[in-house]
């Protein structure tokens, strides 16, 4: 309940590859679609066809611009959802116990039947990962698709979050970050995966893989001309070329 359980061995979470995410927003609507009909109340959309539509989304994709000192500016697409923190402040602030971290796998969930909709947990989350549903009056957040990943009604290969399953570039990875041998842990190790705002002391489980270095100056490597065209003319060039053939 509101107190955090002892740290679990299994730490399920997402690893998001910022080098590969093209910002297509597929994970955003796949998440919306699954969770609109899955865990808890539907995700409402207020003023859906009006001047200020405002809906509940559990996953949103930002886009940032980075301007290095040398080289052209870059755009980095940046999906953001709950990081299933180990020291989840959203859990401990909750007055009702609705917000909790699962003892067995570390997933942070809201028990909507107990939630009074006070919003405090959203205030406590540094990452903006919680959204109060305006229609249901309960707090919504990424469930890590807890109703998919263990779901025996789904084929084995589909037991992964909706956003991961749909991501066309494969920029989203799901797995056990508590197991250093898991594929996700190895990815994090290989690619220098990092946590967001570590100084907030939340100890997120999710990791981000940084963009690879871009726009390396490659001007140095150039092609050696076959021979000086000016000196030999076209005929000389052609001879040299066809000699190789």
């Amino acid at each position: 309940m509101t107190a955090l359980p002892p740290p679990s061995a299994k730490k399920l979470g997402l690893v998001i590859d910022l080098d590969t995410c093209v910002g297509c927003q597929a994970c955003v609507t796949a998440c919306k679609g699954w969770n609109d009909q899955g865990y808890g109340a539907p995700l409402s959309d207020m003023d859906a066809y009006g001047s200020e539509p405002c809906g509940t989304f559990l996953n949103r994709v930002h886009s940032y611009e980075v301007t290095p000192d040398d080289g052209p500016a870059q755009i980095i697409n940046f999906p953001r959802s709950c990081l299933h923190c180990e020291d989840a402040p959203c859990v401990t602030v909750c007055p009702t116990g609705a917000s909790y971290k699962r003892a067995e796998d570390g997933i942070v969930l809201v028990n909507e039947d107990a939630c009074i909709g006070c919003g405090l947990c959203a205030w406590a989350c540094p990452y903006g990962a919680r959204e109060m549903d305006a229609a249901a009056g309960v707090m919504k957040k990424c469930t890590l698709c807890v109703d998919r990943i263990y779901n025996e009604n789904l084929p084995e290969e589909d037991r992964q979050p909706a956003c991961v399953r749909t991501c066309p570039t494969g920029a989203r990875h799901f797995g056990d970050l508590g197991d250093p041998e898991s594929a996700v842990s190895r990815l994090v190790a290989d690619r220098g995966g990092y946590a967001l705002m570590p100084e907030m002391g939340t100890r997120p489980v999710n990791r981000y893989l940084p963009p690879r270095p871009k726009d390396a100056r490659r001007e140095a490597s150039v092609l050696a001309p076959l021979l000086d065209l000016q000196a030999t003319g076209f005929a000389g060039w052609l001879d040299r070329l066809l000699e190789r053939f």
Partner: peptide, 25 residues
């Protein structure tokens, strides 16, 4: 219609869907 997801066996998308496809509902 309650949910739309990609068809894993399909030659084009192999299970994935884009944002538009996933919000066909």
């Amino acid at each position: 219609v309650s949910y739309i997801e990609g068809n894993r066996d399909h030659p084009v998308n192999k299970g994935v869907l884009c944002a538009k496809g996933a919000s066909g509902i």
